[in-house]
Simulated assay, not measured.
Amino acid sequence: MLDTIQAINRSAAFNRWAGFDVTQAADGQAELRMKWREEDMGQYTGFLHAGMIAALLDTVSGFAAATVAGRVLASHFSINCISPAIGEAFVARGRVVKAGRKQVFVGAELFAQPEGQGEDKLKLVATANAILVPVDEASTTPKPKPAA
């Protein structure tokens, strides 16, 4: 499963640009790591931008759900920013709370790894809840545009 989720991650241009690295994906859980880049990831005061926080949490939620339900799309997503996201790296962890036939409920957390500290010093900076919907391949394949 980890290989499959890593391949999906590599296929997404945004994830490649951001440097998302899938470190775990199995049995309703997933984990992403991302290194901080000051030149293009911060907001006006130098913290990780909330858009990046949301992207990490949304992505890890989808990957956790995909380990139990296959291809999914988000139908609801909410985040809570708990403290400024400051660190040399960030770790997002998602876990399936309940998986049904039509909805998968996921909880996720984002941690900052402080400068010069190891993973044993991670600081919780944001949480999220997501509801994802399993979809079939045909419903998510773009349809060709008609010729003009």
Results as ranks from 00 to 15, higher is better:
A108M: 09
V68Y: 01
T59F: 06
T127K: 13
K123G: 01
L57W: 06
V97I: 15
R93A: 09
L132P: 02
Q103E: 11
K123N: 02
I86Y: 09
T45D: 10
A64I: 09
Q103V: 13
F105N: 07
S61R: 03
Q117I: 01
P84N: 10
M34Q: 11
I86S: 11
E39Q: 12
S61P: 07
G116M: 05
F47N: 15
D40A: 09
L56V: 05
E31K: 14
K35V: 13
L56K: 05
K102P: 00
K35P: 03
L32T: 08
M34K: 03
T127V: 12
A138I: 02
H76D: 05
A30W: 12
Q117D: 10
P134C: 03
A112E: 07
A30P: 15
S78C: 09
A74N: 11
G28R: 04
R93I: 12
V135S: 01
V104P: 01
A89C: 04
K102C: 00
A74I: 03
I86T: 12
F111Q: 02
A50M: 08
I131C: 13
V133C: 07
S61C: 15
P114T: 08
D120L: 06
V135W: 05
K121S: 15
I86D: 13
Q29F: 08
A128C: 13
V68P: 00
G28L: 09
I86L: 14
A64H: 12
L56Q: 15
D40T: 12
E119S: 12
T127I: 10
D136Q: 09
V96L: 11
R93Y: 09
A69L: 08
P134F: 04
A66N: 14
Q113L: 14
E137I: 09
L57A: 14
K102T: 14
A126M: 12
L57P: 01
R93V: 14
D27L: 04
D120W: 08
I53C: 03
P134T: 07
G100R: 08
R37M: 12
M41S: 07
M52D: 00
E137V: 12
E109V: 03
S78P: 01
G87I: 06
V135A: 04
F77H: 07
K102Q: 13
G87F: 09
E115K: 10
Q29H: 14
L56P: 03
S83H: 07
G51T: 12
A85R: 11
D58L: 04
L110S: 03
A108Q: 02
L110N: 01
A138Q: 09
L110F: 00
T59C: 13
L32Y: 14
A30C: 15
E109Y: 03
G42N: 11
F90V: 08
N129G: 14
Q117C: 11
A126K: 07
V72N: 10
W36I: 01
V96C: 06
E115S: 04
V91W: 08
A85K: 10
